[in-house]
Design a protein around this nucleic acid. Structure first.
Lengths: 241, 241
DNA sequence: CGTTTGATTGACACGAGTCAACACCAGTGG
DNA sequence: CCACTGGTGTTGACTCGTGTCAATCAAACG
């Protein structure tokens, strides 16, 4: 199934017609090699992007050169709906891995959601979910210990990957270096390494070879104080009408 | 001028008809005493709120009882546009001060933005601004020292207050205890106190009596590495058509 | 007036950053 | 085929920013 269809299906069942229209709108795709920026802070946003495969990071870089990752965008995620009304981007989009993206211009997007209100609702849900995740990152970075932060990040990413069918049991792709994990949880690289070793030593996760495997989900969630409610992915939200 | 009109005017000049329609839609107002929760995590969101006066905080509380503030909502700010499609709120809304809010239900909001596309655009801008602020908080908490964090928070709040006409020169209301500042910048109360004293000693700000006064804006911004671009408030964005 | 809330201060502990070195591996070019 | 390179992971030693605990003080309040 198309990754974006799969994602939106978490909120609402789409008809064949809706899915087809969505795929048509997303037909202008392109690839980005790992390590490239898709867009830079300060640029004028021209189009909306959707992630079809690979990992995209939102991030900012400080004057000191330190980086802070703001979000992971995984296949199915929309990227900056509605942003075209802004004059400048406020952060960078970075291709963590080789990615395939779809480029959609505002007109086509508008046309799509006007014709299919359920798709509009689903995108609205997706945007609310992203806001919620961003807020949870504030809590994570602000109030949890480094080891809990990393545990929480792992819980979130695995749950999101699983939700769009990209997890293999308790394992999913996570093609991220330890330095990049550190940029997510706001620690130094060295400390991220030590924390990761601690998680391994506690037999909570295995991480390496660009994959994350959760060995003890309950233990990990307990350590992270993870409650997936903020992801708003429970089937209860489903709109079928 | 009505605070919400004032806020949206930062993005687009509203006609008299648009302003009037907006005010009509926002006519169902109510008050909340300081210290009360407007809404709790886990509740089903029924309506959208708008802040007419006072300060509202988004926040989450951890099991340990520690709190993390996620955002300040000041007069003119919309609160959770579109949230009614979610099953549960993912965080609390807390009245920092005595507040006057407007309650708008989804139908009325929908009607308003369908009739006035410019208002829809302006709310969209407002939502994008809030997302951007949330991301900047991640950078702030994650990558800046405690003193820079507090300086940055002060820069942001003053600029936002000034933008909606609620600053008196370099001074604005900031009815927040030091413990609450600590909840914003993710430090302990004790450390927030020491940091604040440091800012005072450096003659950068005066803070007390529920007011913030910036004594040296350049120095404060320098310390905070503050660049207001992320607020997307430059007049360049104005839509007059 | 007691009581309470918020601000302030000092002493001490500890989590996390920094710096530096080293191991490992995949390329890459001679 | 081997030396060289750069990126990534790992480790140890040391430093320092912040948290914690506890006490004191001021102002607000019933």
């Amino acid at each position: 199934m198309h990754p974006v269809v799969r994602k939106l299906t978490l909120f609402a069942d789409l008809t064949a017609a809706e899915a087809a229209a969505l795929e048509t709108t997303l037909s202008d795709t392109f690839e980005v090699p790992a390590g490239k920026f898709v867009a830079h802070e300060g640029e004028a946003p021209e189009t909306i992007y959707f992630v079809l495969s690979g990992f995209i990071c939102r991030q900012k870089t400080l004057r000191s050169g330190e980086r802070q990752t703001l979000a992971f965008l995984i296949p199915g995620d929309a990227c900056d709906l509605g942003i075209t009304i802004l004059r400048e981007r406020d952060h960078d989009l970075y291709a963590q891995t080789h990615c395939r993206l779809a480029r959609v211009d505002e007109q086509d997007y508008r046309g799509l959601i006007e014709e299919f209100p359920k798709i509009r609702m689903a995108f609205r849900w997706s945007a609310l979910q992203e806001s919620s995740i961003t807020r949870e990152w504030i809590v994570n970075i602000g109030r949890r210990s480094a080891i809990s932060r990393l545990a929480h990040l792992f819980c979130e990413l695995h749950e999101r990957m699983a939700a769009v069918g990209l997890a293999d049991g308790q394992s999913c792709a996570l093609p991220v270096s330890q330095a990049e994990l550190a940029d997510c949880i706001s620690t130094s690289t060295v400390h991220a390494n030590r924390i990761l070793q601690e998680l391994r030593a506690r037999k909570l996760v295995a991480f390496g070879d660009r994959r994350l495997t959760i060995l003890d989900l309950e233990g990990l969630q307990e350590l992270a104080e993870f409650d997936g409610g903020y992801l708003h992915m429970s089937a209860r939200y489903k709109v079928t009408a």
